[in-house]
Every structure is written in C-alpha cells, then in structure tokens.
Design a binder for these strands. Structure first.
Length: 320
DNA sequence: CGGATTTGACCCGCGC
DNA sequence: GCGCGGGTCAAATCCG
C-alpha cells in the first residue's frame, strides 16, 4: 500500500532515521552509538578480529531493525493522530456550519467591480453568481458573507524567486504591487475562468521567511479542478504542479501550509496524483500536520530524545 | 497571432 | 479635503 509513502516523504522517518534529527536539531553530540564511522578505527586498531566485526555488524543490523520498528510505530502514531485530527476537524466544520460567524472580510468592495460584474454577466450563462453579487450590494445585511477568504502558505525553494503558488488552478496575473508592510511585491491573480469564476488570489512572500509564499484566496471556484478535467484530456498547460491542493474550501480565514519545495524535490518520484478526492485532502491535511510537527522544536526534540533514549536503553520494552 | 504577463496610471476607501 | 496605500485597469510587451 502507498498509505505510508507520503508520510515517509513528509517526515523522512524511514529514509533518514536519526541522522535527520541530529542534523536538524543540532543536538549535543549523542553518546557514541555503534555506528559505522566509529567501527573501522576500532577494528583496525585491534587488528584482524572478524568475529568482533560480525558481532558489531549484527548489532548494527539489530539496531537498524529496532530503529525501523521505532519508525513504524511513529508512523502509526502519526496516522492515529491524523485520524483524530480529521475527526476533530470534521466536528469543527460541522460546528462552523451550525454557527456561522460573521467573516473577517474586506468590507471594501470596489464599486466598479460590482458594476463590472453586472456588465459582464450577460455573456456567460452563469447568472447565479451575478445575481448574488447584485443582491449582496442591495442587501448587505443578508449577504454579508463575502467571498470566502483563505490563506495558504506555500514553502518554496529559496532560489525560486517567482510568485507562482502552484495550486492546480490556472490563474491570470493582473497586477503586482509593492506594499508597505512587505518589501516583496504582491501579485494579484484572477482565475483564468473569470469572469465566470470570481476567485482571486494574492501571492506575496512572507516577511519572516522569504521562502514562504503566502497566498490569499478570495471566493470559491465554481468549476471543477483543472486537474480533474485534465484527467480526460491530458492537456495541462502550465499545470505541472508539484502538489495538487485544495485551498481549504471549507474554511473561513484559515491558514494552511504547503511544502512545494519538498514536493518539488520529490516530484521526480512522480508523487503527483491528478485527482483531488478525499485521499488527496487527507494527504494534504496530514502533510500539513507533519510539517507543523516537524517544525515544532518541542516535538522534534522530544522525538529525538525518545528515539535516542530507546536506542541506548535496549531493555526498555514497548510501551507505546 | 493570440493569450499571458508586465507595469504605470487610475480608482477608491480610509485616516487625519 | 487631502494624502496615502491597496487594489484594479489596460496598453504595451513578451512568448509559445
């Protein structure tokens, strides 16, 4: 099953055990574990002791197996956590639906924009959204629900200077401004299906971390995901995205994080699945959790401590 | 050549 | 009323 493959790519649990944590956490030097680097010097100093070498090798293999099991357990733990998260999230969404709150949306809607919408409505057969826009202008009390605003963080390579947050949809850039609070320019995009699709997004690099793109989505797409359509045609102009994602359609003012850099690096393994159904959403959620977990120094420290503690206390039995 | 991008000008809300 | 700043427009330019 591929059920754990994405977890591994997110956490590198199985691929780079221990070294990952030591490198990333800058932990104080761990007591000398029976690792390969230490071994040859000792062996060479002791002369030809093949028996000890084999013993050491066996110990290493045993150690590796133990670490692998540890990783499996951690992966299972993560899976459980993800399931719990999904349950909680579902409950939260239900709660939000039952208790819709007033949104924190930009109250300033350009007058010209609404008029433009009214002007552009006739040609496309999608008069539904236009009528709601018009009504929203006339009845602001009733339709205070402005386009849903969601914020998505994309982690990109630092070398990637573009402002392209690849989310699978096709966007047309219509403006770029340098704002006061952020030296990085902010790019404005409209969905290429506009005006039938009213979704807009703003992309700007984070002030704190230049490798993070902050994309702010306004509105919801009223058309299927391009990748879903491409599944039949196969033509995906400019949609060679590394990570198909759903920009948190059900959340209001929420913030999610994608790791495009990591996805890009692993894109050689063809991790892209051109569909966004429940598994994709689940994957995205878990990746988000994994990213946030691995970024949390407390979590990584505790994890490293737990692993190292178990490594050097082989007597300790399973307790997770 | 048509569509996408760039970029300066313009619009408009907001604070003073 | 005025200036500032964010957002949008649209002509020019680029690109496949």
């Amino acid at each position: 099953m591929e059920s754990f493959s994405w977890i591994n790519t997110s956490l590198d649990l199985n691929t780079k055990p221990l070294k990952l944590f030591n490198d990333e956490l800058h932990l104080p030097p761990v007591p000398p574990s029976p690792k390969k680097k230490e071994l040859p010097s000792n062996v060479s100093g002791l002369g030809t002791k093949n028996l000890s070498v084999k013993e050491e090798t066996g110990a290493l293999v045993e150690e590796l197996n133990r670490v692998s099991e540890e990783n499996k357990k951690l992966t299972e733990m993560l899976t459980v956590m993800c399931e719990n998260y999904n349950v909680l999230r579902t409950q939260l969404v239900d709660y939000m639906n039952k208790n819709p709150e007033k949104e924190i949306s930009s109250s300033k809607k350009r007058k010209s924009e609404s008029s433009n919408n009214n002007n552009n409505n006739g040609n496309i057969g999608n008069s539904e959204s236009s009528s709601t826009d018009e009504e929203s202008c006339k009845k602001p009390k009733e339709e205070t629900i402005k386009p849903k605003i969601s914020r998505v963080h994309y982690r990109t390579d630092a070398s990637d200077t573009g402002l392209v947050a690849k989310d699978g949809y096709q966007w047309r850039k219509y403006g770029q401004k340098v704002t006061r609070d952020n030296p990085s320019p902010r790019a404005y995009f409209k969905c290429s299906f506009a005006p039938s699709c009213p979704v807009k997004k703003k992309v700007q690099r984070s002030v704190e971390d230049q490798s993070v793109l902050v994309a702010t989505y306004e509105g919801e797409h009223n058309h299927p995901h391009p990748l879903q359509m491409d599944s039949t045609s196969g033509s995906s102009r400019g949609v060679n995205m590394a990570a198909a994602s759903v920009p948190c359609s059900a959340s209001h003012g929420s913030t999610v994080t994608f790791d495009l850099a990591k996805s890009k690096s692993s894109s050689n393994d063809r991790v892209v699945k051109p569909r966004i159904e429940a598994p994709e959403m689940k994957k995205f959620l878990v990746e988000q959790m994994a990213t946030s977990l691995t970024k949390d120094p407390n979590f990584t420290t505790a994890l490293a401590a737990a692993i190292s503690g178990r490594m050097f206390q082989p007597n300790s039995t399973e307790k997770w």
